[in-house]
Simulated scan of single mutants.
Amino acid sequence: MLNRTATLADVGDVAAFVASDRARTITGTEVNVSCGAMLD
């Protein structure tokens, strides 16, 4: 755990990355943005 909580900006950064062309090879995966608070 990172001893912090994810902010809306953190989640937004991940969403923007997943929606971008840089993530074009990522398929069928889950992204955990809980700062380690929740295990996959």
Rank of each mutant, 00 (worst) to 15 (best):
S20F: 09
L39Y: 09
F17L: 14
L8W: 01
S20C: 10
A19Q: 13
A37G: 05
F17H: 13
L2D: 08
T7R: 03
D40C: 08
G28C: 05
A15H: 09
L39Q: 10
V31M: 11
V33Y: 05
R4E: 04
G12W: 01
R22F: 08
G12C: 04
E30K: 07
L2V: 11
A16M: 11
I26W: 14
D21G: 14
L8C: 03
S34L: 12
V33I: 13
E30H: 10
T27W: 00
D10W: 02
S20E: 08
N32L: 11
L39D: 08
T7G: 02
N3K: 08
A9T: 07
M38E: 13
V31Y: 12
R24P: 03
L39F: 14
N3E: 13
D13M: 08
T7L: 02
M1P: 05
F17A: 11
C35V: 08
V31N: 04
M1W: 01
S20W: 02
V11P: 03
G28W: 00
M1H: 11
A19R: 12
D13T: 07
V11L: 15
G12A: 13
R22Y: 10
G36N: 09
N3G: 06
F17S: 10
D21I: 03
A16K: 14
R4L: 07
S20M: 09
S34T: 15
D21W: 06
M1C: 01
G28K: 06
V31K: 03
R22K: 15
G28L: 01
L8I: 03
A9R: 05
T27A: 13
D40E: 10
V33F: 04
A6C: 05
G28P: 00
V14G: 04
A19M: 12
A6D: 06
A16G: 15
R24C: 15
F17G: 08
F17E: 13
M38G: 02
D13Y: 12
V14K: 10
T29D: 10
F17W: 12
V33M: 11
L8Q: 04
A23T: 01
G12F: 03
L8F: 03
S34G: 07
T29M: 05
A6M: 06
N32D: 14
G12D: 12
A9C: 04
D40S: 14
N3T: 00
S20H: 10
T5Y: 08
G36K: 02
L8A: 08
N3I: 00
N3M: 07
V14D: 06
A23F: 02
G12H: 07
A9E: 10
R24D: 15
A15W: 05
D40P: 15
A16E: 15
M1V: 05
L39T: 09
L2M: 10
N3Y: 13
A37R: 14
D13V: 00
N3W: 07
N3D: 13
A9H: 02
A9Y: 00
